[in-house]
Nucleic acid binder design. Structure first.
Lengths: 238, 238
DNA sequence: GCCGCAAAGTTGGGGCTCCAAGTGTCCTCG
DNA sequence: CGAGGACACTTGGAGCCCCAACTTTGCGGC
């Protein structure tokens, strides 16, 4: 977006795009260091750094003597993990990877922080925030609820802006550096049973997620998932 | 361990040790590139690479113009996340970060894979595996159960070996490249209620964890956590 | 005693080069 | 026709250098 980003990022973003949009399928060879320097008109350092970044993301894998290749099982790669974590419906991962569509409704309103949210965002209890309720559906069935709290000035207004909190914050000059989650299970509240169409006796997974910019929390949300019909999948390259 | 490891690893491991054992507390400055080259007698490239690796692990943070510093909140760093994930009791993280001791009992026995484990490890149903049952306790109270399945030849025999599956596999020449988890909640089985001292009506979190070496699964385990009294905490640098 | 500025130090981007170890290909020789 | 070896290519470790942007420190002057 900026006019003078690091050049290695140009290479990273171009290859990443080709992998995510399927131009480079799993197993496909990535151009070698020498080829990248010619193709993108960058130095060897930049080409090498780009490959290392992509390998660090788990999107490609390097084989000494042979080359870099798009990794198999990319649906479990950190990029995807990352995309889903950043997504307002982070635990819709397995549904999406099965090719099914996740849709959602939301509505926003101003709200007082209250003791719990004030603690999580390190704010005063009487601070007014934007509270957004989300209902996520997969193939029409309710999958997941989320309630997000963020300062008024950062709230999303369009569908597009809702897709990535990190990108939205970045546009405001705020760089998200960490995502902290705390998970437990509990009995659903009546409104939740209703919204999720839960049979009696089924518990829910409750995820408290907070986005941090350095040592300052900038957004927090409560995510509620039916505990029976759902699975969370992720992976990490070692 | 090996006689001729990459030199940057020497630097990484030394600094990492100092951070984890408290010699370098949160906020402490890390020697600069120039100082590292002198101190460890390595080139600038190696010093720089070591700092990048540590920063990538989230243990330190670089500030342009100032230096690298041990990160605050290191109990949420990826290294720790990683250590706990690799640990047989991955979700004892918040207890340990509060300084409490987690202890465990276990017993191993040979067992037939059976349909479920055979599918997860891509083996034949009649294959004999080592099955290990763990009971984890924090301050004497039961916290977590785990059942691990691994090929006979890789099984751990000492307490020390049990601490890190990744290190143990590495000693066998097997490099773990990925950890895949699938989580859901369910009603506890009678034996689980018993072992975890669960009040009636409390559900459990059931985690299916599989360690992969390339495209081959080498270990899988079922981890059962009480859903009421427990929280999972982790974080990821963006 | 305090302010402001310059100098020194630090990170992060980028460039170039050498080398060891491993892979793949192709050609030659038996 | 087939096996084996030479050669070209690739990764990953390592070294050295230059520079822009930023922070810290310390000194000189008011």
């Amino acid at each position: 977006m900026a006019t003078s980003d690091p050049v290695y990022l140009r290479v990273v973003e171009d290859i990443r795009r080709q992998i995510t949009d399927g131009t480079l399928p799993p197993g496909a060879p990535i151009p070698s260091r020498a080829q990248l320097t010619r193709k993108y008109q960058v130095g060897e350092t930049a080409a090498r750094h780009a490959l290392r970044v992509l390998a660090g993301e788990g999107l490609i894998i390097g084989r000494v003597g042979s080359g870099h290749y798009v990794r198999e099982r990319p649906d479990l790669s950190p990029l995807h993990r990352w995309r889903f974590l950043d997504h307002p419906a982070p635990f819709a991962a397995d549904l999406q990877s099965q090719g099914r569509r996740v849709t959602w409704d939301w509505h926003s309103e101003p709200a007082e922080a209250g003791p719990d949210i004030a603690r999580r965002l390190r704010l005063d209890e009487s601070t007014t925030l934007t509270r957004t309720h989300y209902v996520f559906r997969g193939d029409g069935r309710p999958l997941q609820l989320a309630t997000s709290y963020e300062p008024l000035e950062f709230a999303a207004h369009t569908e597009e802006e809702r897709r990535s909190l990190v990108a939205r914050m970045y546009a405001h000059g705020i760089k998200i550096t960490e995502i902290v989650e705390s998970v437990h299970t509990r009995v659903p509240r009546p409104a939740e049973s209703d919204a999720l169409d839960l049979p009696a006796g089924i518990h829910v997974l409750h995820v408290e997620r907070t986005h941090w910019a350095g040592d300052r929390p900038v957004e927090t949300s409560d995510i509620v998932i039916p505990g029976d019909r759902f699975r969370i999948m992720y992976s990490m390259p070692v």
